[in-house]
Amino acid sequence: MALPAWVWFLCFFTLPVLWIVYYSFGYKPDIYHPIATDKLSLGSYHEAFSRAFVHVFSQTLQISIIGTSLCLLIAFPFAYWLATRVSPRWRGVLLGLVVVPFFVNFLIRTVGWLILLSPAGPVSSLLQRWGLRSEPLHLLQTRGAVQLGVVYNYLALMILPLFVTLDRLDPAMREASKDLGANRVKTFRQITLPLAAPGIVAGLLLVFIPLTGDYITALVLGGAKGNMAGVVVASQFTIAQDWALGAAQAVILIAMIMGTVAVFGLFAIAIRAIVRVSRRITLPPVAEEAV
């Protein structure tokens, strides 16, 4: 017998989150016990906000917003080209190539960049050989490396939903638009973009949410400068073994993600409302029409 959907939702989503929220009000009693909840307080939140990791959170938000935007900017033209210009046979091959990195563990993929970007690695060597740089390029352990790493790691999550919506978009839509006098730019803005909106939203959420919580990319490529909130939260759980503080930080991270999504969501809704109002046509009153 099928369980009601809310049971599923409760077990796999709500309960774990509620547990984290509950822990965030606890404290760490001694070094051998990561959490105690016999006394509940906001102490962990106070501690969380009083520390340098507020910096890390704002840096994380920057990295994830820039990273998500870059993913969209790179993925959209690619997905559009793939859906509209590439023959179905090559489309499969190219989509396969997009997905191939996913067959490799996330960590290993990221470690690959460690080799590519190291000062003794191929990127740096090539730049030096071509005389574009006189010294080894120190790309690793910078924020830029993390930015690059997250774009690489999450790009496919943007490409796939975009491709699916753009592929489903009847080419006749664009032709109809051009036929009615809109040039390519106007067609893109008035037809392709609004019709691809569900895919764009899906891609943005699919990339932004895990990217904001990512810690592997920052841990491997970031060094001291490319720190991200995920690393901070993880180290409270694994190194400091202070689950209360870690949980409080996790709750703040979740709130930050939801807040950002809400702000952008409201922004998008406002834009859509403006577009709709500007598009609205007032018809002159019609005499009662014969059927």
């Binding site: 006749a172 032709e175 109809a176």
Partner: peptide, 10 residues
């Protein structure tokens, strides 16, 4: 102007 096969209404 064209009337498309499946109408292609937006």
């Amino acid at each position: 102007n064209t009337v498309f096969q499946n109408y292609a209404l937006f």
